[in-house]
């Protein structure tokens, strides 16, 4: 009796193992090359990492689910390139943990929205999109301008980013909290540190027009304004792939 049971038990486990093997070989064969894919990612020597304020803004973008309506991936199709700019390259999202390519365009693509509008436009738009685009179906995000940013543990964020492979220096990690507020205070002492660590081209300003505090809106706009601007590679090689689509 025991023997009989034993055999049956082995049988169902064997079956389970078979399912795992069959299913995972397919996945593995397809995915394995992608773990060496960084070898095929175009070099982008001018690429910089997100500043702490921009990273905080990115986290707000994630928290509010902006990705549910906005893609950040311009496909290599003619109409997309004409509408949104040069198509997205793999290099441009190499520091994005996780990527925010999106799968639905209820709103327009944002991969290259950085610099397209003024900060002020964004402030008005985020507070009530219908003030600038009367037909818009985008939600109003009034609470972002009310909420102060909580920077207390931002060094931990940069440390974790470092662990997953983003090239933040130890100095950047150590100064994360100061840099966070420094970037939104152009007149403050901390601003210089941000420029020194993240490059002269970094946007240093009071993004949300309220100099008294650093809000979530400051962070979000800092992030929006850098989208598509971390590297210039996409602009330097305008046509590498043949574009497809209607004429």
């Amino acid at each position: 009796m025991f023997n009989f049971h034993y055999r049956l038990e082995r049988y169902s486990i064997r079956f389970a193992i078979l399912v795992v093997i069959v299913a995972s070989i397919g996945g593995f064969v397809e995915i394995a090359p992608l773990f060496t894919i960084d070898e095929t990612v175009e070099p982008a020597p001018d690429m910089r990492v997100y500043t702490p304020l921009e990273l905080a803004g990115r986290n707000i973008y994630i928290r509010e689910g902006c990705y549910a309506c906005h893609s950040q991936m311009i496909r290599s199709l003619r109409d997309e390139v004409e509408r949104y700019g040069p198509y997205s390259l793999a290099a441009e999202s190499q520091y994005d943990h996780p990527m925010l390519w999106g799968s639905k365009r209820t709103g327009p693509d944002l991969a290259r929205v950085g610099g397209k509008y003024s900060d002020y436009w964004h402030v008005v738009h985020m507070n009530n999109p219908r003030d600038v685009v009367p037909e818009s179906v985008m939600p109003s995000y009034r609470w972002l301008g009310r909420n102060e940013l909580e920077p207390a543990d931002f060094d931990l964020h940069l440390r974790a980013q470092q662990k997953v492979g983003v090239p933040y220096t130890d100095e950047m990690v150590a100064n994360a909290i100061n840099d966070l507020s420094g970037q939104a205070n152009p007149d403050g002492k901390r601003a210089e540190g941000v420029l020194a660590r993240y490059g002269e081209a970094t946007n240093i300003r009071d993004f949300d027009g309220d100099p008294t505090k650093v809000t979530e809106l400051d962070a979000l706009i800092a992030y929006l304004q850098i989208l598509g601007r971390l590297t210039e590679v996409a602009h330097q090689n305008p046509v590498m792939k043949k574009l497809e689509g209607p004429k």
């Binding site: 397919g26 064969v29 397809e30 394995a32 090359p33 060496t36 894919i37 070898e39 095929t40």
Partner: peptide, 15 residues
């Protein structure tokens, strides 16, 4: 790059 090419080749043929 060789390694990547190799993996791709493997995936395409033996797969």
């Amino acid at each position: 790059n060789f390694e990547h090419e190799m993996l791709v080749g493997f995936a395409k043929s033996y797969g």
